[in-house]
Nucleic acid binder design. Structure first.
Lengths: 195, 195
DNA sequence: GTTATTATTGAACAATCGTTCATTTTTATT
DNA sequence: AATAAAAATGAACGATTGTTCAATAATAAC
């Protein structure tokens, strides 16, 4: 594999992820990538096959990183619900200024690609369902911990959460008032706790 | 202006809108547009200045069309809230199979473009705020008609609605079960009626 | 019907796109 | 130290990108 000595494969994928995240799949050129990861075309193609191949690994890396972040926050807060809340805060609010894009890379990809990229689109959907499963697990843990009503359907709650996150991230791209967005996130979590 | 005799300017913009809507700004090439609107580069540039210029008019046309549709539905149903519900149903559910893209063109554009296209991005934000205003007006009308609690903040409700629509349209791109999506739309409107 | 004005054409432009591959450099094996 | 295997290079490919402009066609004015 390419460049195993100095920089490892994961580092390359991470940098590529950030570029794709910022500029999108079509918006990112192979020459953009070459500069950012400091590799020549031949090496990139030897290691990842194609622009699609590298993008696919970027999507997977992005998803895995997100799920890991959620799990870490659950541990550090010592509560599934608080961990989830911290995750959503970071995702919707902090990410708006600190991340390559305020959007969710998966949502951005679903939005950008068409049937011309059927395989990438299918992979993206698969990864979003993977995120949904992580949410279901977390919400079920919150039920066990007595933080959420046990009568509620965690699958529906997870879907609801996905819609809120994706919607809020786009909306935060229009309305840059952090307090407004923070309030909207809070009211999402109020619907979890009450009823 | 180009081609005033046979096909009018609005028809050209409408076709361009559908193509941009399907493929995105970068995904749409000038040659794609040339085929769809049956015009040669010179004529297009004489009439619209640039790819950005035509896109800007497409965004405006899309927004205006959407607001007009909402107003028509309010009239035909004879109720602000029912009109709004029909609009959201059409937007989130029907559009998923019948429109060039299941996504909102404005949300898609916010998601796709970066600071490199600052002007287009600013125009898109302006248009989304225009949609928000149309929602505020409609929700206020619904209050007057006694369909929504008059104590509620219509600005917050309109923001909430924007988040739901944008989020649901993306989610509908992953989960294609129409009933699931329809249920989620229904529960959005339940929050309007109750409390 | 002739002239002036406006609209349309489509070939051509430089720049960039994703990708390939013969060559060189590095690493591993003996 | 010599040889074999693997990795990295970067020039070059054909295709496509957005855009321009001299030439042509259509329309308007008189």
């Amino acid at each position: 594999m390419a460049n195993t000595s100095k920089r490892n494969r994961l580092d390359i994928i991470d940098k590529s992820t950030n570029l794709y995240w910022e500029k999108g799949f079509y918006g990112t050129s192979m020459r953009n990538l070459q500069e950012v990861i400091d590799m020549r075309p031949g090496s990139i193609y030897a290691a990842f096959g194609s622009k699609e191949g590298l993008f696919k690994e970027a999507l997977q890396h992005y998803t895995q990183q997100g799920i890991e972040q959620l799990n870490k926050l659950k541990l550090s807060t010592g509560s599934p619900l608080k961990g989830l809340k911290s995750f959503v805060d970071a995702t919707v609010i902090t990410s708006q200024t600190d991340a390559p894009s305020g959007m969710c890379l998966l949502a951005k990809t679903i939005s950008e690609l068409t049937k011309d990229n059927a395989e990438l689109l299918a992979e993206t959907k698969r990864l979003l369902l993977q995120v949904e499963k992580a949410f279901i697990i977390t919400l079920t843990e919150a039920q066990v911990a007595g933080e959420i009503d046990k009568e509620k359907d965690t699958t529906k709650l997870a879907r609801y959460l996905q819609v809120q996150i994706m919607g809020l991230r786009i909306y935060a791209g229009i309305n840059h008032d952090k307090q407004t967005i923070a309030d909207m996130v809070n009211s999402v979590f109020l619907t979890f706790e009450q009823d």
